[in-house]
Design a protein around this nucleic acid. Structure first.
Length: 627
RNA sequence: GGUCCUGUAGUUCAAUGGAUAGAACAAGUGUUUCCUAAACACUAGAUCCGGGUUCGAUUCCCGGCGGGACUACCA
C-alpha cells in the first residue's frame, strides 16, 4: 500500500499535478488556439452528427512541416459517430469550420488528418499581445504561492566537485527556476555532508602525512587540497590491506582490521564526543573546502537560499530514531544497533543507528527533513539526487511516514542518471574523475580561442572578451548537460570537446546575439517599431510558424515543471532558434521596403529574442548581446 | 536471486498512442559585392527480438535478450 503510494510520488506526485493545474499562466485573449478549435470542432460534430463529444477527446496537434496548414485535428476517433470514412469525416468538419469561424481560412484532409490554416490577422494580433509581455510564459510567485523546497548539490566535504556534481547542480538550479516560473515559491537548499567517516579519512591522512600544508602554503584550492588527502588515505589504507592479506587474513577481515580504518573510526567517535582537538581540525579543513566550493558554485552560477549542515541535523535524527524505538516502530538488536523492519513493505531491514550509537546517512536525512519542515511551510519537498539512491529515498519516504510525518510519502525524488565516460563510470581512485573547476575553465578557454579565431570580438575590450567567453563556454557546458532527459544516463567524452556548432548552447546564444544586432541597427536607423498595429500584412508561412512556436512557450514551461524536465525547455529553445535562423536567412528585415512589413519582422525578431532570453534563463544560461 | 531505470543512424540526443521516426556531430557537397557563415541548403544512414491491445505502437501490456543502478554498521 505504502509502496504503491511512494511509486506515485516518486517522480512527480499526483498531488502536485492537481495543484499545478490550478495555476494559470499569463492570461491572454487570443491565445488559447487549441481550446478555440476544440470548441469549434465539438460544435461541428454536434451539428453534423448529432453527438456530444468531450473536448479532451478532440486531439489537436501542430501540423507537420510537410503539409499545408497550422493546426491539425485527428479525425479517426470521430468515425464511429460520423459513420463515414476518416477522409469524409474530415471534409465534413472542415467545411463546417470554415463557415463558422473567420480565423480558420482553409483546410485540407489527408487520410484521417484535417489540416486547418489560421488567418494572418489572428497571428499578428497574437504577436502584438505577446510582444507586450516581456515576461511571457513566466509566472511570478505571489504571497500566497505555496512553498517548494528543492534540495540539490549536497556535497561531501572530503573532495572537490566533479562532473557528476555539475549535472546535479545544473539540474537543481534549473528546476528551481522552472518551478518559480510556474508560480511556486521556491527555496533552494543545500545539505552539506560535513561529517562522517569519509571526512575523518581526509583529516587523518592530513594529520599523519600533511606536514602542516594549507591552501595558503601550497597555493591549492581548499577543496582540492582536502581531496588530495582523501586519496592519500585510500592509498595507505589499500597498502595496509594488502599487507594484512599477505599475512593470511581474508580481504574482508583485512578491510575491517587495518589500523588506518580503525583510527578513522576512532576519530569519528571522538568527533561525536566533541573531542576538542579533532573538532578543531574538522573545522579548519571544512573551512578550506567551503572556500573552494564557494568559488566553484559562483563560477557555475548556482546559489542557495538556505544551507543545512549534517553536523547540525544528525542529532535531531537520532532523537527521532530513539522516539521511534520507544514507540515500537523500530527495534534494537543485541549489539544495541537500531533497525527498521521494512519487510512488510517489500523491502529489507534498514540500519538507523550503529551499535556504538553513531548515526548513518539515513539518520541524518530524517533529522534534516524534520528541521526543514519546522523552518518552513513546505508544501512540496524535492530531492535532486542521483538514481543510485532510488532505494534510499524509497526507504526515507517509508520511514518518515512511519514516524508520523504526514508529508513523508509525498516527497519527490528528482532522480537523474549518471554521467559516464566512454570507458564507463568515473572513478576517483583511478584518476578518471572530470574535475568541475578544470572542465569549466577548459570550456571557457576554448570558447575564447574560437571567438578570437573567428574574429568575432575584434572591437571588444579585454574585459568584454572574458565575459563573452565565459557565457559561451558555460553555455555550451550547461546546454550539453541539460538537453538530455534527466532520467537517462549520459556519456561525456573528455577527448572530444563539447561542440559550439549544431544543437548547442552557443548556437542558441548566437541567434540571440544576431537578433540583438539587428535591433541595435534598427534603433540606429531610427526605425520605431514600439507600438504599431498590423493590418493587412501578408504572412509568410515561416513567419506564422514562428509566432505559433513562440506562443507555445508557456505550455512548454508548464510541462517542464510538471515533468521536472529542463530538457523540454532546451529542446524547445533549439526548435525555436532553428526556425528563426531559417527565417533570418530567407528574409530581409532591415532591407525590407514595405515599412509595415519591416516593423512586423522587427517585432517578431524582438519577441523571439526575448523568448530565447527567458527560456535560457530557466536553464541558468546567460545570453550575450554580441558574440 | 529481488527491486528499479534503460535499449532509436557510426556517435550523442529527440519524438502527449498518430501522417514518410526528427536533429546534431562525424563523412561528402553547395550558398557570403546582401541585417554576424558559431548560419543556411543538399546527399547518405536507425526503432534489440517475439507476442498482445488498437483504425493506428518507438510509445501501452506480457515474455525474452542486452546495458546500468541499488540490494553496506559508506555518505
Amino acid at each position: 500500500m505504502l509502496f504503491s503510494h511512494w511509486k506515485a510520488s516518486f517522480f512527480v506526485s499526483s498531488n502536485y499535478r492537481i495543484f499545478a493545474t490550478k495555476k494559470k499562466h499569463n492570461s491572454h485573449t487570443t491565445m488559447n488556439l487549441e481550446l478555440t478549435i476544440q470548441n469549434e470542432v465539438a460544435k461541428a460534430i454536434k451539428e453534423l452528427f448529432g453527438t456530444e463529444v468531450e473536448l479532451k477527446s478532440i486531439q489537436i496537434q501542430k501540423t507537420k512541416k510537410e503539409f499545408e496548414g497550422d493546426v491539425t485535428v485527428v479525425t479517426f476517433p470521430f468515425t464511429k459517430v460520423s459513420r463515414k470514412s476518416p477522409e469524409q469525416t474530415g471534409e465534413a468538419i472542415g467545411t463546417f469550420l470554415i463557415s463558422q469561424n473567420p480565423i480558420i481560412t482553409k483546410f485540407n484532409v489527408i487520410k484521417g488528418f484535417l489540416n486547418l490554416s489560421i488567418s494572418a490577422e489572428y497571428w499578428t494580433k497574437l504577436l502584438i499581445e505577446i510582444n507586450q509581455q516581456p515576461q511571457f510564459g513566466i509566472m511570478t510567485p505571489d504571497e500566497q504561492a505555496k512553498v517548494m523546497m528543492i534540495e540539490y548539490s549536497s556535497p561531501n566535504t572530503n573532495k572537490p566537485l566533479h562532473l557528476g556534481h555539475i549535472r546535479n547542480n545544473l539540474l537543481g538550479y534549473s528546476i528551481a527556476e522552472i518551478q518559480k516560473a510556474n508560480g511556486w515559491n521556491v527555496i533552494k537548499t543545500n545539505i552539506v555532508n560535513d561529517r562522517g567517516i569519509h571526512i575523518c579519512k581526509s583529516m587523518l591522512a592530513w594529520k599523519l602525512f600533511g606536514n602542516g600544508e594549507t591552501p595558503q602554503s601550497t597555493g591549492m584550492k581548499g577543496d582540492h587540497l582536502v581531496g588530495k588527502y582523501y586519496v592519500v588515505f585510500d592509498k595507505a589504507y589499500k597498502a595496509e590491506i594488502k599487507e594484512l592479506m599477505d599475512k593470511g587474513l581474508t580481504e574482508e577481515d583485512a578491510k575491517k582490521k587495518a589500523p588506518l580504518i580503525l583510527a578513522a573510526q576512532n576519530m569519528l567517535l571522538a568527533w561525536e564526543n566533541n573531542d576538542p582537538e579533532v573538532y578543531q581540525l574538522w573545522q579548519t579543513m571544512n573551512g578550506w573546502v567551503y572556500e573552494g566550493f564557494e568559488v566553484t558554485y559562483k563560477k557555475l552560477g548556482v546559489d542557495f537560499d538556505k544551507i543545512y549542515y549534517e553536523s547540525q541535523t544528525y542529532l535531531e535524527g537520532k532523537n527521532k530514531v530513539e522516539e521511534g524505538l520507544a514507540k515500537g516502530v523500530f527495534y534494537q538488536r543485541e549489539d544495541r544497533s537500531v533497525w527498521a523492519d521494512l519487510t512488510p513493505d517489500g523491502l529489507d531491514e534498514k540500519l538507523l543507528l550503529r551499535g556504538d550509537g553513531t548515526s548513518v546517512y539515513m539518520t541524518q536525512d530524517i533529522g534534516t527533513a524534520k528541521l526543514r519542515y519546522d523552518d518552513y511551510q513546505i508544501s512540496k519537498m524535492v530531492y535532486v539526487v542521483g538514481n543510485e539512491q532510488n532505494y534510499h529515498f524509497q526507504v526515507l519516504a517509508l520511514l518518515l511516514d512511519k514516524l508520523g510525518f504526514s508529508w513523508g510519502k509525498d516527497l519527490v525524488h528528482f532522480s537523474y542518471g549518471m554521467v559516464e565516460l566512454p570507458e564507463g563510470k568515473m572513478k576517483s581512485r583511478e584518476g578518471t574523475v572530470v574535475d568541475a573547476d578544470d572542465l569549466m575553465q577548459e570550456m571557457i578557454d576554448s570558447a575564447k580561442e574560437t571567438s578570437l579565431e573567428l574574429g568575432k570580438l575584434d572591437n571588444c575590450t579585454e574585459q568584454e572578451i572574458e565575459e563573452i567567453a565565459r557565457m559561451i563556454g558555460l553555455g555550451a557546458l550547461k546546454y550539453f548537460i541539460l538537453k538530455v532527459d534527466p532520467r537517462k544516463n549520459m556519456t561525456f567524452n573528455p577527448k572530444e570537446s563539447i561542440d559550439f556548432n549544431g544543437n548547442t548552447g552557443p548556437f542558441i546564444q548566437y541567434t540571440h546575439a544576431r537578433i540583438k544586432s539587428v535591433l541595435r541597427k534598427a534603433n540606429e536607423m531610427g526605425v520605431d517599431y514600439s507600438s504599431i498595429t498590423f493590418e493587412n500584412i501578408q504572412l509568410a508561412e515561416k513567419e506564422s510558424n514562428l509566432i505559433q512556436l513562440v506562443s507555445e512557450f508557456p505550455n512548454v514551461v508548464k510541462q517542464a515543471g510538471d515533468e521536472f524536465s529542463p530538457a523540454l525547455i532546451a529542446n524547445y529553445m533549439y526548435e525555436l532558434v532553428k526556425e528563426y535562423n531559417q527565417f533570418y536567412h530567407d528574409f530581409s528585415i532591415l532591407k525590407e521596403e514595405n515599412e509595415d512589413c519591416k516593423k512586423f519582422r522587427l517585432v517578431l525578431s524582438k519577441t523571439v529574442g526575448n523568448t530565447i532570453q527567458n527560456g535560457m534563463k530557466l536553464l541558468g544560461i546567460d545570453v550575450p548581446e554580441r558574440m
